[in-house]
């Protein structure tokens, strides 16, 4: 599973500025024979990448879409064409619709909780305090660990009766549910979200901090001379100036939340009683465990479409402002 960060935001903005720069760097035009040669060179350069993407990205995505129109248990040719029946089954399956809801809960909870928290920590770390570099390194540590490894440690801490968390919470008088946090349907998803926040907050802090450090000193100084307080400066100047970084982080976080798999699989496997399934855990259990490849294909297409629509909508509604402001 790729980390959410691998989806770089240029994905939605090929960068008009980049193109303009390229124009200025144009290599001298060539003659007719040179042109054919140039075409050959380009083909040689691009071929390995395009071949890899064709075989391992485009073809599997295409077969997922094709598979979704057949009833197929994984053996023999695709013959049992069922039209959109797999989609009907997926979309009327409570487990899948609940999974979609869980994904969206994580999407919105991430933005509502991690954004303010990440911003607050970034503002804090942007002050001149001792050990700032060390602090920044430490905050980023969870992000570098594999989701699986972080998940296994948290799983141990969250064990009912023997886990660390129960002891700590018990000692300050917070009651712990009988089945543990991960075993209680009403609390499991929230618990997964807490662990995800622990794991990914460092990325938000890091990106916001980088943005804050790009805010010109003169603005701070001018505002201070005018008698603005520290908080006023942050609210009126620093935060608006790093808005593009914030919007991009929201985009990455959204895409990552929609694809959530590893942490859920380790912590709960989608349980208890399907309380934490996500679209990805649903399609994996349908495809590899249930052998319902057609259903898994339909779920894949739905997952892709939801992600695609949200990415495009976000691009039009939010990120586009950044591009406009640039121009």
């Amino acid at each position: 599973m790729t980390s959410p960060v691998t989806a770089a935001p240029e994905g939605t903005d090929p960068g008009a500025a980049v193109t303009r720069r390229a124009e200025a760097r144009r290599v001298t035009p060539r003659s007719g024979a040179g042109k054919r040669r140039q075409r050959l060179e380009i083909a040689i350069f691009v071929a390995p990448a395009l071949a890899l993407m064709a075989v391992f990205v485009v073809y599997p995505v295409y077969s997922a879409a094709r598979m979704s129109l057949y009833r197929w248990k994984g053996f023999g040719p695709l013959v049992d064409f069922v039209g959109l029946r797999n989609y009907v089954r997926v979309l009327t399956d409570d487990v899948f619709t609940d999974a979609v809801v869980h994904n969206f809960i994580i999407v919105f909870a991430s933005i509502l909780v991690q954004l303010p928290l990440g911003l607050a920590l970034a503002l804090l770390l942007n002050r001149r305090i001792r050990g700032r570099g060390l602090l920044r390194t430490i905050i980023f540590v969870p992000y570098v660990l594999a989701e699986v490894i972080a998940g296994v440690v948290w799983f141990q801490m969250l064990q009912p009766r023997t886990g660390l968390l129960e002891t700590i919470l018990g000692s300050v008088g917070i009651p712990v549910p009988e089945q543990g946090f991960l075993g209680t349907p009403d609390l499991a998803l929230a618990t997964v979200f807490v662990v995800l926040t622990w794991k990914y907050l460092g990325l938000a802090v890091l990106l916001f901090l980088a943005g804050l450090q790009g805010v010109p000193d003169e603005l701070h100084e001018a505002a201070q001379l005018d008698g603005a307080s520290w908080w006023q400066v942050q609210r009126r100047i620093a935060i608006p100036l790093i808005a593009p970084t914030i919007r991009t982080w929201c985009f990455l976080s959204m895409i990552g939340s929609l694809q959530l798999f590893d942490m859920v699989w380790i912590l709960t496997g989608g349980g208890p009683a399907n309380a934490t399934t996500t679209m990805a855990t649903y399609l994996i259990s349908q495809g590899t465990q249930g052998g319902n490849f057609g259903i898994a294909g339909a779920a894949s297409v739905v997952l892709f479409l939801i992600g695609f629509v949200m990415a495009v909508a976000y691009q039009f509604l939010v990120l586009r402002r950044d591009t406009k402001e640039d121009a």
């Binding site: 989806a7 994905g11 993407m53 995505v61 077969s63 399609l283 994996i284 892709f304 992600g307 695609f308």
Partner: peptide, 22 residues
Amino acid sequence: FMVFVLGLLFPAAVAIVPLFIL
């Protein structure tokens, strides 16, 4: 270039079952 940019929108999870078969 757009081909690569569009590639960003395809998470491995979407293609995982056919990828396994392939």
